[in-house]
Amino acid sequence: MTTTRRFERQSNFERYAFLFMRLSGIALLLLAVGHMLLQHILRDVHSLTLQAVQDIWRSWGWRAYDLLLLLFAIVHGFNGLRQVIEDYMHDQRIVRVTNAILLGLVIVTILWSAVAIFNFNPDAVMAVGE
């Protein structure tokens, strides 16, 4: 006679989430800390205007930098929030609902901002700016 055991196949999601947090963390060490030093030390946020955004986003290099920063930071940040919420929420139904809301926010935020970065027209804004 054989004993059969039924078990749920474990998803690898948390393992990938764990790895993503470490790897994106290393990327953000350059991207996010770099962005902070750039805006607050090399440039001065007190002179930040729409005009300044035009100068920066005229370069596709800076747009790519900001897009990468956006992707890593939003996913890293929202996954961190998910972990914090799961630490304190023990009702699995509520956790599923909040996770779905967080995923929705991640997708909407990234899409909206990515479209903004791609569609920014530095010359069109000139007319509106002043």
Binding site: L50, I74, F78, T109, W112, S113, V115, A116, F120, V125
Partner: peptide, 17 residues
Amino acid sequence: VLLFLIIHVWDTANATF
């Protein structure tokens, strides 16, 4: 940082929209 990030990202998108 996440709280500021969300405000900052949506605000910056306004530069286009």
